[in-house]
């Protein structure tokens, strides 16, 4: 499946996208958590897309929850080569994996080799939070060559010109950050989110996913009403920390009901 096909299959609702870092709490442990995220529980399916994070030493747009989890992964000895293994495991579990990574590890690995190896491992796309299309010539080429979707971010502060530029460079979907800030669960998704989705849609037919701050089925339902994808990250880590794989599976199922419920009303 391609990301396009995943979103098409979800046509009457938003896709649920769940984030967890590779290597957290260990490489094998992260495979289990991702499988739980994909399978869901109690006959309710889990995430349509899983976002596998590459732990990085300097995660400048992550809040404390993801910082701590990725730090723990690195302390446990996570290496970039482990990422491919985790992605393959998620794909084999029936998931649709994309990778979220800061740019320096890709730069170091070599953009072309990174795209090639990730595609071979079964990844469908890559989210790059600190790479803007203006600096992405070699990445556009590498992802084009190897058939990997490239997901850039837009923010409430993005001008129309930048929304157009970013949407044009993106494929698969566009990642809209709901609030100005770092990752982390919040009580409410910013009011800016719906406006940003609408502004982004004016520039592209690509699906628009909303991330940052979503932590409950209610919020997922709310976002599902105006976006094509609901991205949940920090809240999954908190579940994993407190309740392990079972908690993650149940939470994914719960969020899944949230994104489905909204259109079934």
């Amino acid at each position: 499946m391609s990301l396009h096909e995943v979103f098409t299959a979800c046509s009457d609702r938003a896709a649920l996208i769940g984030y967890l870092p590779a290597g957290y709490p260990t490489v094998e442990g992260s495979k289990d958590l991702l499988k739980a995220m994909i399978s869901g529980a109690s006959e309710s399916p889990g995430c349509d897309i899983v976002e596998v994070g590459l732990p990085y030493s300097d995660p400048v747009i992550d809040g404390p929850t993801i910082q701590d989890a990725t730090h723990q992964a690195l302390q446990a000895g996570f290496r970039v080569r482990d990422l491919f293994d985790v992605v393959t495991s998620a794909a084999e579990a029936g998931g649709n994996p994309v990778v979220m990574t800061y740019w320096n590890p890709v730069h170091r690995y070599g953009p072309d080799a990174f795209a090639r190896d990730l595609r071979a491992a079964g990844a469908l796309g890559v989210i790059t939070p600190d790479l803007i299309p203006d600096e992405a010539d070699d990445w556009l080429e590498a992802t084009g060559t190897h058939g990997l979707d490239r997901i850039f971010l837009v923010a409430p502060s993005s001008t129309e010109q930048r929304l157009a530029l970013t949407a044009k460079a993106s494929s698969g979907f566009v990642y809209a950050t709901s609030v100005m800030g770092v990752t982390g669960a919040r009580d409410s998704v910013g009011d800016a989110a719906a406006g940003l989705v609408a502004r982004t849609r004016a520039h592209t037919d690509l699906p628009v996913g909303v991330g940052l701050g979503v932590r409950s089925a209610e919020q997922a339902a709310e976002v599902s009403a105006f976006a094509d994808g609901v991205i949940v990250g920090s809240a999954f880590i908190s579940r994993a920390e407190q309740q392990g794989t079972d908690g993650v599976a149940e939470f994914a199922a719960d969020l899944g009901r949230g994104v489905r419920g909204v259109r079934a009303r």
Binding site: V60, F152, S157
Partner: peptide, 20 residues
Amino acid sequence: ERGHFGPYGGRFMPEALIGA
């Protein structure tokens, strides 16, 4: 004009900060 000194410099920043 985009801040490159040869192959160095530029902007490897979150989109949210580009406007500022």
